[in-house]
Write a protein that binds this DNA or RNA. Structure first.
Length: 425
RNA sequence: GUGAUCGUAGCUCAGUUGGUUAGAGCGCCUGUCUGUGGCACAGGAGGUCGCGGGUUCAAAUCCCGUCGGUCACCCCA
């Protein structure tokens, strides 16, 4: 890459979405939107930046807020942040607009985290997500998880593992955290050195440490399910029952601790088994029964998930699923006279609903037909001196070697083309 | 933030122990084809070898720095 002093490139951890990939992105986005809509979820778009306070509620001590957030003062010195995740903003919108519950919404767009990029991790990344706010019914948990499952299946993923857990309410969490800390402190010296400092700050994080020494200690640690009260246990039981009823395979993973502080009760994660990289969580979410209140709203339960588009597509790549859709150009107009016919016919075809394109700069017929071929078009319309004199168009079928080249009166091109493409029948 | 690794044409890469005008394949353009794509052949365009400094008679090749890519830790989508 020749980079002169006056050239620029995308900032670290960001990338351009170019035509060779963009059709696929549009396709996943559409797949997600229609699946969400099918379950009664409607689109919500929130700003890409908000008052920092909106996001700091997701956990002051978390890395997402503490060290990865793009924070800045606007020109009037208001503290702002580029959104690092979706849930907090949706909850802020809920508090601001007070819609009727259950409020079932979905979102998609770019999110920002100041991190070192890595496989499946970017500074600007893209997520789909849904949130269902206002109901405590465990069947909503099931509906949300099922929707995530449906999306993964719809893009053709097979090697996906669903992990679920329950964290109970905030009291459960507190009591568990307490007991876990005590346990870990007793075994402090057996832990991997790099994990010891977390015992004080984030005992829950120690649970999913990858270091072998820590893992063997953690194997004997108390589990959260022993701390769930009767209501939490019943809620979780109903969720598991629902997943079984819908034939969605899952594994209960009591050590599944998600990184954001707001989670209560059901938490879950879909991991791609086909992904070799360290970041194999393609979708993660859970219940957040205290977050709305944190943001100044009435006590309101909610649940949702976020799904990383980059990771989803990475997983599709490794399973060879969800290929890039093929080009959409149907007709190529080849004009070897002065280009007026290409100009006029391309326009005529387009306003008649046909995907049409053409060459510019007066290229040779050979070159124009080559472009037609590469575009993936079915049909080339050819205009030369002869066609001009006779007011006709030559029609060449590019994908059928048997087909004869046709000559039709110019004023019948549109209907002829539509017929050949099978648009009218 | 820490560590490892890489950085030569649009893309994938070759460039021997530092030595004349830096190469290949693919892609792109033109021609063989006097109005017709996919194949073949021929030709062409395109690089201050990421950037800056140093060592040397001489650096893509050695040294230092810097920027960027990739991967891992951490954390998470």
């Amino acid at each position: 890459m020749s980079k002169k002093a006056n050239t620029f490139q995308t900032p670290i951890g960001t990338r351009d979405l170019l035509p060779d990939e963009s059709a696929r992105w549009e396709a996943v986005t559409n797949t997600f939107s229609s699946i969400a809509a099918r379950s009664g979820f409607a689109l919500v778009d929130t700003p890409m930046f908000e008052d920092v306070g909106v996001f700091s509620r997701i956990g002051e001590g978390t890395d997402v807020v503490g060290k990865e957030m793009y924070e800045f003062l606007d020109r009037s010195d208001r503290p702002m942040a580029l959104r690092p995740e979706g849930t907090a903003a949706i909850c802020r919108a809920f508090v601001q607009h007070r819609p009727v519950v259950p409020w079932k919404v979905y979102y998609r767009g770019p999110y920002f985290r100041y991190e070192a990029p890595q496989a499946g991790r970017f500074r600007q990344f893209h997520q789909f997500g849904i949130e269902s706010i206002g109901s405590d019914d465990p069947d909503i948990d099931v509906e949300v998880i099922a929707l995530g499952w449906d999306v993964l299946k719809s893009v053709g993923l097979e090697q996906v593992k669903l992990l679920v857990n329950s964290m109970g309410d905030s009291n459960t969490r507190k009591r568990y955290q307490q007991s876990l800390s005590e346990f870990l402190e007793q075994h402090l010296l057996e832990l991997d050195q790099d994990d010891r400092s977390k015992v004080e700050s984030h005992p829950l994080r120690v649970l999913d440490s990858k270091r072998p020494a820590t893992q063997s200690v953690v194997a004997g640690a108390p589990l959260i399910d022993e701390f769930l009260d009767k209501d939490a246990e019943e809620h979780f039981e109903r969720v598991r029952e629902g997943l079984n009823a819908l034939s969605i395979p899952f594994t209960v993973e009591p050590k599944l601790v998600r990184g954001l502080d707001y989670y209560t009760h059901t938490t879950f994660e879909f991991q791609s088994q086909a992904l070799e990289s360290a970041q194999n969580t393609v979708c993660g979410g859970g219940r957040y029964n205290g977050l709305i209140e944190e943001l100044g709203g009435p006590p309101t339960p909610g649940i949702g998930f976020g799904m990383g588009i980059e990771r989803l597509l990475l997983a599709c790549d490794s399973e060879n699923s969800f290929p890039n859709p093929s080009a959409r150009t149907q007709v190529w107009v080849v004009d070897v006279t002065d280009g007026s016919s290409a100009r006029d016919l391309a326009h005529l075809l387009r306003i008649n609903g046909i995907f049409a394109d053409r060459s510019f700069d007066g290229r040779s017929m050979r070159s124009q037909i080559r472009s037609a071929d590469r575009s993936g078009a079915q049909i080339a319309l050819i205009i030369g001196e002869q066609e001009i004199d006779e007011s006709t168009i030559s029609i060449r079928m590019l994908r059928d070697d048997q087909a004869e080249q046709l000559v039709v009166p110019r004023d019948q091109v549109v209907s002829q083309v539509r017929q050949l493409l099978g648009l009218d029948s």
